[in-house]
Design a protein around this nucleic acid. Structure first.
Lengths: 131, 131
DNA sequence: CTTAGTGTATCATTATATTAATACACCAAT
DNA sequence: ATTGGTGTATTAATATAATGATACACTAAG
């Protein structure tokens, strides 16, 4: 995908109450999950994005700083931002992995601790018997 | 449990960055999940709690307002606050329950046994650390 | 070295969330 | 009705988070 057409991946809602930088983070992650962004691909520059989305370059930069922390992409001054080469080496299928990751993220965002999460899984394993 | 001994359920950390009212919410929910608080039981009054924990009564009240919204307890002026009669599983939000059920069903359809599923969850809990 | 592209550290501003002070509302028992 | 207990609406103060302006740093190419 060209960097200019990548801009269309983003759809910001400034009145949703969700911070812009968080919307960016989520939408980039989603694009990667959906294979719209592939490892090694270059993202639009902070200024291009900022101009296209009508926001401050620093807001882009901060969002991408977070994504770099999470290992999703790499930033280089003078160069740009690249999607990381991901280890997808695990034998897990997306049908298992995606809902698992989503479950864990949502559970944590509702402040369940790890022990509670494990208990929950146990409960559901006993409820949803194989049939 | 007596309302006075319930105070010991709470352990607030004012320098953790996590808001007090959120710590209260989480600790109450956890106590209910662990059966330390049972349906019908009465909680300490906002003033007792506030005094014991050295915080403002309104902070307690706001935490409990949230819990009432979530159906965890009921507040009555002049009376006090009671733990709701309910089944524990009902407090789960769709954001947690849906991916959990999907995960378990898909894992089973790929012939993972329960032990493997639990191990998987444990692995992902350690990989997808909070943040 | 200059230019024109990249990202960013620092700080100021603005917006939002959290906590607290006060006065009030409700209930049960006297 | 009074007392002494319950929770709370309103508002103000404070703390934290998010955004933005500016000046700067890094890189590749001419």
């Amino acid at each position: 995908m060209t960097t200019s057409s990548m801009v269309n991946l983003f759809s910001l809602n400034t009145s949703s109450g969700i911070p812009i930088y968080r919307q960016l983070i989520d939408q980039i992650k989603q694009a990667i999950r959906m294979d719209l962004l592939k490892p090694g691909e270059q993202l639009p520059s902070v200024r291009n994005l900022a101009s296209a989305l009508q926001i401050n370059p620093m807001t882009i930069s901060k969002a991408f700083a977070q994504l770099e922390l999470e290992g999703v992409l790499i930033r280089k001054r003078g160069i740009g931002m690249l999607v990381t080469e991901q280890e997808k080496g695990e034998a897990l299928t997306p049908a298992i992995e995606l809902p698992l990751v989503e479950f864990i993220q949502n559970a944590r965002s509702e402040n369940l601790d790890d022990e509670s999460i494990m208990t929950l899984v146990q409960q559901y394993l006993s409820i949803h018997t194989k049939g």
